[in-house]
Amino acid sequence: MSRVAVLKGGWSAEREVSLVSGAACATALRSLGHDVVEIDVAPDLSAVLTREAPEVVFNALHGRFGEDGCVQGLLEVLGLPYTHSGVLASALAMDKPMAKRVFSDAGLPLARGRIVSREEMLAGEPMDRPYVVKPINEGSSVGVEIVLAGDNVGPRELATWRHGDAVLVEEYIPGREIQVAVMGDEALGAIEIQAFGRFYDYDTKYKDGRARHIMPAGIPRAAQDEACDIALSAHRALGCRGVTRADLRYDDTGEGVGRFALLEVNTQPGMTPLSLVPEIAAYRGMDFTRLVGWILEDASCRR
């Protein structure tokens, strides 16, 4: 058994979710017999890790610093093996425009989009409605806005965002919300999310009763297989390792065969009671404790 440091909390917009993920993972690791120290991450992380002397780090951080390559770089400097993706893959996945370039080069289906500055937004509509406005480097749908044809909100109101000097604006893809878990070199399956609100936003993801989860996704088997192929290709294109989750839209609102659009890849999927990767893994016969154990073992192999 190993001495494991579980990193959780931090100071990103997803701090509260990370605390829940970290606590759940720590409990699972203790049940497997590991010596676990839980660390609510602060700027003195390097000193804390040096003092605690873990053999391996279980990264349960979400959002900035936790999954954008920063903490991964620190762990590399300290010579500590850690869970999930490395520095480059984490940084690429978190930077949505850069990830889209990688996905485009890999031939994966995407929503049309472009980076829009605050000044451009103030000058008028960035594209024909409906469209989606996203922070360039946040996760868990933090700061995401959908602008539909009849909405009163306009570019001037959206230009008050608090997530940097520019945003990513993409065409809105109607249809279904599909997410796929990838574990190692295998896509575990596709799940469908039916949000009871406007869309699968931050509150919907982490508050019970806000969405319906359908596993496997209620789309044709051929479409499920296609979703898994896209997710695995995206995982590989970014150079990810461990477990990731790909977010897709499936537009089956028209006639004929539906079309997919890959939205993003999450390199630090949530591990809360409402999180999707554990639910997909459970459908495949892997309970939460086994999943956490596999993630740790995958990191330990790189020691």
Rank of each mutant, 00 (worst) to 15 (best):
R3S: 14
G9W: 02
S12L: 11
E14Q: 04
E14K: 01
E14P: 00
V20C: 14
V20I: 14
G22K: 07
A23T: 11
C25P: 05
L29Q: 00
S31V: 06
L32S: 08
D35N: 15
D35F: 07
V36M: 10
V37L: 05
I39S: 00
D40I: 13
V41R: 09
L45A: 14
L45S: 13
S46V: 12
A47P: 11
A47Q: 04
L49Q: 06
T50F: 05
A53Y: 07
E55D: 15
F58M: 08
N59G: 04
N59H: 13
N59K: 14
G63L: 15
G66Q: 07
G69Y: 07
G73L: 08
G73N: 10
G73R: 08
E76A: 15
G79N: 14
Y82D: 01
H84C: 10
A89Y: 03
A93V: 15
P97Y: 02
V102K: 03
V102P: 03
S104A: 13
D105K: 13
L108R: 07
V116F: 01
S117A: 12
E120L: 07
M121Y: 04
L122F: 01
E125H: 12
E125M: 08
M127A: 02
R129Q: 02
R129T: 07
Y131I: 07
V132P: 02
P135F: 07
P135C: 04
I136E: 09
S141I: 03
V142N: 12
G143L: 07
G150F: 02
V153D: 07
P155Q: 14
L158N: 05
A159Q: 06
W161Y: 15
R162F: 08
R162E: 14
G164A: 11
G164C: 08
V169Q: 03
E171T: 11
Y172N: 12
E177A: 12
I178H: 01
V180G: 12
V180E: 06
V182Q: 09
M183W: 14
E186L: 11
E186D: 09
A187E: 11
A187Q: 09
A190P: 11
Q194D: 00
D201R: 01
T204I: 05
T204L: 01
T204E: 11
K205N: 05
Y206I: 06
K207N: 14
G209H: 00
R212P: 02
H213A: 06
Q224F: 10
D229I: 11
I230D: 09
I230M: 05
S233Y: 07
A237W: 14
L238N: 08
R241G: 03
D247P: 00
Y250C: 00
D251R: 09
D252S: 04
D252K: 03
T253V: 10
G254E: 06
E264W: 08
E264N: 05
E264F: 07
P269S: 02
P273D: 01
V277Y: 00
P278Q: 02
E279D: 10
E279S: 13
I280N: 13
A281P: 03
A281F: 04
Y283H: 15
Y283L: 11
R284I: 09
T289P: 06
R290D: 09
G293L: 10
W294Y: 07
I295T: 10
L296Q: 02
D298T: 09
